[in-house]
Computed example of a mutant assay.
Amino acid sequence: MYGFFENPYRVLKLSHVLLIGGLIMLVVGIILAYGCDAYLTLPALVGAHAMTILGPTAIKLGYVMRLLAYNRLRSI
């Protein structure tokens, strides 16, 4: 598991996936939770609100991983 994070190029690719995935989760969550709330069931609405929380979390994790990967690439 830890060997996966030893390669900075792999960490950089994963950070880009997290950044894009977090942005998609945030936008879809906002559209569903606040735009289509009258048409959703309660569990779907709870999931949409959870996406508005988990999306920015993924963006923050991806950004920190990106900074760490660039820092490690600079020292090579």
Results as ranks from 00 to 15, higher is better:
G35S: 00
E6W: 10
V11R: 03
S15H: 01
I30H: 08
L54K: 06
L61Q: 09
G62Y: 00
T52M: 04
G3N: 14
P43S: 03
L61E: 10
M65K: 01
Y39A: 15
L45H: 01
D37S: 14
A38T: 09
T52A: 05
M51N: 05
L18N: 04
S75A: 13
V11Q: 02
I20W: 08
V17Q: 08
L54S: 12
A48F: 00
T57E: 09
G29D: 00
A38S: 11
L26I: 03
E6N: 14
P43F: 02
D37M: 09
T52R: 01
Y39T: 13
Y34S: 11
I30R: 06
Y9K: 15
C36K: 10
A44N: 06
E6T: 15
L12R: 14
Y34K: 09
L45D: 02
L19W: 05
G47S: 04
R66M: 12
Y2T: 08
I20P: 02
L54W: 08
G47T: 03
H49K: 10
I30W: 06
G22E: 02
P56M: 01
V17N: 08
M65C: 06
L32E: 05
R74N: 13
T57C: 10
L19F: 07
N71H: 11
A33Y: 02
Y9E: 09
F5P: 03
I59R: 03
H49W: 11
I30Y: 07
L67T: 10
L54Y: 09
A38G: 05
A48K: 02
D37N: 13
H16Q: 12
A48C: 01
G55I: 02
Y70P: 07
A38F: 07
L40T: 01
V27D: 06
H16T: 12
A48N: 02
M65F: 08
M1V: 11
S75N: 12
V27A: 14
L61A: 12
V46C: 07
R10K: 11
M1S: 13
L73R: 05
K60D: 13
P43W: 00
V64C: 09
L68Q: 10
G29I: 01
R72E: 05
I30M: 15
G35D: 00
V64K: 10
T41E: 06
Y70L: 14
L61T: 14
I53F: 08
L68C: 13
T41N: 07
G47A: 06
V17I: 15
T41W: 03
I76N: 11
L68W: 07
A38E: 07
I24C: 05
V28L: 13
L68D: 13
I30V: 12
A50N: 10
Y63P: 03
D37H: 10
Y2A: 11
A33D: 04
P43L: 00
L40F: 00
S75W: 14
V64M: 11
I20D: 04
T57W: 11
A44Q: 07
L73A: 06
G21Y: 01
F4H: 12
G21H: 01
E6A: 15
N71T: 14
N7W: 04
